[in-house]
């Protein structure tokens, strides 16, 4: 059993993607999900937004030399809507993303990020826009996403962030991989199951 690291701080340069309602088909097109592992997904993150059908690069923040090596993704409203595919946050993480700051996240996406140990934190529209502006003006700025203080700091910016308490607790205590905790309640699982009328076939 490996020791679970604690994910209370992520720091790095930023990558801004300005648009609401970016869906998981955009983040990882379904045709790249044909595989039995998550390996190699990073290169296909945002594939069709980055390359045309002949494979020529289009302008996209993921390939913008100014943001090269960025690890903090800064997005707008309802990011990650659509399918439940964990392939989406897996592709972002394998591309090198270590935290996502956005106005809001689709629920399954935010849950998937958390169980992988990838913080997805929310901030107000003006704060997100200011951070995106700052990254574009000064891409070298280090962004610090601090889950202890629940603040983002970058250059002269310093603002509060939010996320579900349970997600924060899981990340800062290193308990985001839930299987062992769930399994430790085995007796209670069996007790609840045996009390459900449909488990016994309504006999």
């Amino acid at each position: 059993m490996t020791i679970t690291p604690i994910r209370s701080l992520a720091a790095g340069r930023g990558i801004p993607i300005r648009e609401n309602d970016i869906d998981t088909d955009r983040i990882i097109p379904a045709r790249y999900m044909k595989g039995i592992t998550f390996e190699g997904l990073g290169e296909f993150a945002f594939h069709d937004a980055r390359f045309d059908e002949a494979g020529n690069p289009k302008a996209h923040p993921f390939d913008d030399p100014r943001f090269k090596g960025g690890s903090i993704l800064v997005v707008n409203r309802n990011f990650g809507c659509g399918s439940s595919r964990e392939h989406a946050p897996q592709a972002l993480e394998k591309f090198g993303i270590r935290a996502i700051v956005g106005e809001s996240f689709a629920e399954i996406f935010a849950g998937n990020c958390t169980v992988m140990g990838l913080p997805a934190v929310s901030a107000s529209g003006p704060d997100v826009a200011a951070l995106q502006d700052l990254i574009e003006a000064k891409p070298e700025t280090e962004i610090r996403v601090d889950l202890e203080a629940m603040r983002v700091g970058a250059g002269n910016l310093d603002f509060g962030i939010s996320m579900k308490d349970s997600y924060r607790n899981a990340l800062v205590s290193g308990t985001w991989d839930s299987t062992a905790a769930l399994l430790s309640n085995l007796d209670a699982i069996r007790a609840v199951a045996s009390a459900l009328p449909y488990i016994g076939g309504f006999a």
């Binding site: 998550f38 439940s84 595919r85 964990e86 392939h87 946050p89 399954i108 849950g111 998937n112 169980v115 992988m116 991989d177 839930s178 299987t179 769930l182 399994l183 085995l186 699982i189």
Partner: peptide, 11 residues
């Protein structure tokens, strides 16, 4: 997501 599929399979 898939990590939760793991949880439901195991527990």
């Amino acid at each position: 997501g898939t990590s939760q599929v793991r949880d439901v399979l195991a527990t």
